[in-house]
Design a protein around this nucleic acid. Structure first.
Lengths: 340, 340
DNA sequence: GCAATTTCTGTGAACGTACACAGAATGCCA
DNA sequence: TGGCATTCTGTGTACGTTCACAGAAATTGC
């Protein structure tokens, strides 16, 4: 008696063919649901597949088909932000849902360190994804360059990093929304309105500031704008402290994101002032933060899941050889709660 | 003049060999950093690779190597929870960091609908991952069964879903931590301590309740335990409302998670009581919620990133043919803030 | 009842890589 | 100079699938 193999090898299309008494080609046709498979063959193949436990090998299929049915979801963020910013999670889920409907898999690629950059670049170059969704890219990004060089079908969520002819962008109307909510804040009777402007190196940050400036018109005062690097709680808190020191007579503030607004509220309370009585605060994103502050935030509701879904649609369209619009702009809604 | 090809094909190892005037084998050896490549050949190959822009095709390599250098990260959660629960994000990042160090890619697989189940099962069966990390699996899970059937090296974060000989588990000491924090709460002089017990169908939920019961000993009162289905804010708020109605004399409460605790605090304030003066509240997880409530939560700090990293290590060990321990238990720390 | 069509099937090639093996070149020592 | 170990190289095969093609079988039309 010979020793039985330690690990039973996976069944291949060949094994099924042998078991069913037909050829590889016929099995392949059956598996891919093509026409021209006789009833007899079909039954024999079904039985054989069940018996040997056949599952197609995707790597082999990918190799010959030259596609993978997978889309990369690239996030370039410091890890902490990925955790803190609920929008990214929702964008991811929105994209995943749409991709899943189209029978595509999502590979999440987080780029933080130098090392990640290399690995992700290798992964993309290796032909394991048909296209990519890119979230919050910076202007001069090695990953972006790799994507462009490979001519990989791409859709960006947010900031368009330079001109890339092969890419589409799905964005929200940051400027319009910032203008609307600032106008709304002004309409509550505030006279000295400041802004904590975050991430000015990105389109989103710059556009929100532009909208703010537009809304105030002549009343705009450069000195009441406090720039901070990130959309984070601590940046908001620190920025607000500085702003209050500079302008103690402030009675309204537009924070560039809810996380920033939450930090700002802490700083305001710290200083002994009341929200919204002394200072009205509005945020941006309608993230989980917005319902957790006291009072809850008036803010801009950002269709995060819609952004993800939109990006997925744009990539899928490209994969199907269509030529989708270069930009898709989603509207935002203002949600008025208690903070202003 | 002939038309140039619309899309230039990717360069293969064959093209490089031709360009460098050597054979496929030699190029392959160079690319994989093997010995026995002459200096002359090396230089020629380097030049050729640069010239034709060669990148190895991972699908082809996967096929012949019978491995993919990728690990699946499976989350079975309703979408909303994935977004709300910051621990999952941190677990993901912890795992990603460790996998990335070991040059492995992570494929995120979110299982929510029936449809997801099929797709993920197909993906796993297709041989695109060498192993999996599974977060918050339920007891009778189709995905878990697929993983077991495929004998895929696996590591579970949290709940061990039945006996699976091929898997390892990385868990936190839920029971011990629940006991500690309940004792600590009791030590502040509380006499009527209740618990909002969430997700009792999971080990984590059941163990936290067990630790609570252990800590109180004879003082334990079944009537002061309010079970809720999920670790969510709204579940906590609703549960606390019911508990307060049933036991208006309550002076302490252990919430099964920070999100639950945050909801509980809202309900307590709603009822006109003060935290911590009238009722002391403690949570579990030390998530982002903990620092956002007023007052900030006393809670159990859960090493979420450590859980992810631990799971990654266990899977990697299995992939290297080692036989890691079946369970790795991580300790938690108690963080005392203002809520009790 | 024979040609023309439609349905069905098997075979060989290709995808791009890794690996085993045979054999060529080189170096060393007696 | 011959023998032998060492370094290097090229060729053929395998991985598991899809696809094109040729040809067999069944069905149709007159």
């Amino acid at each position: 008696m010979t020793t039985k193999p330690a690990r039973s090898k996976r069944a291949t299309v060949h094994d099924v063919a042998l078991e069913a008494g037909v050829s590889r080609g016929t099995v392949s046709r059956y598996v891919n649901g093509e026409r021209y498979v006789s009833a007899a063959a079909r039954e024999a193949i079904e039985a054989a597949i069940a018996k040997v436990g056949y599952v197609p090998n995707t790597a082999a299929r990918n190799l010959v088909m030259q596609r993978t049915q997978a889309v990369g979801f690239i996030v370039h963020e410091p890890h902490s932000l990925f955790v803190e910013d609920p929008n990214i999670g929702e964008i991811l889920l929105g994209a995943n849902t749409r991709l899943s409907e189209a029978d595509h898999q999502m590979a999440v690629l987080i780029v933080d360190t130098e090392r990640d950059t290399d690995r992700v670049a290798r992964y993309l170059s290796g032909g394991l994804v048909d296209g990519v969704i890119i979230v919050s890219a910076r202007a001069d990004d090695p990953i972006t360059r790799v994507v462009e060089r490979l001519q990989l079908p791409a859709a960006y969520v947010g900031h368009p990093p330079g001109a890339a002819s092969t890419a589409s962008f799905v964005v929200i109307d940051n400027r319009g929304a910032a203008r609307s909510i600032t106008e709304r804040l002004a309409a509550t009777g505030r006279r000295r309105i400041g802004m904590i402007a975050a991430a000015l190196d990105r389109d989103s940050g710059a556009d929100r500031l532009a909208g703010f400036r537009e809304a105030l018109g002549d009343a705009f005062d450069e000195a009441l704008v406090e720039p901070v690097p990130l959309y984070s709680y601590s940046a908001g808190r620190d920025g607000m402290r500085r702003l209050l020191e500079r302008a103690p007579d402030l009675d309204g503030v537009f924070a560039a994101s809810d996380a920033v607004a939450a930090g700002a509220i802490e700083a305001i309370k710290e200083s002994g002032r009341q929200v919204p009585d002394d200072i009205g605060v509005v945020g941006f994103d309608d993230s989980a933060w917005a319902r957790r502050t006291t009072p809850p935030l008036s803010t801009v509701s950002q269709p995060a899941a819609g952004l993800g879904a939109g990006a997925a649609e744009l990539v899928l369209a490209r994969l199907h050889g269509e030529d989708p619009p270069a930009e898709r702009r989603l509207d935002c809604e203002i949600v008025w709660r208690g903070s202003a």
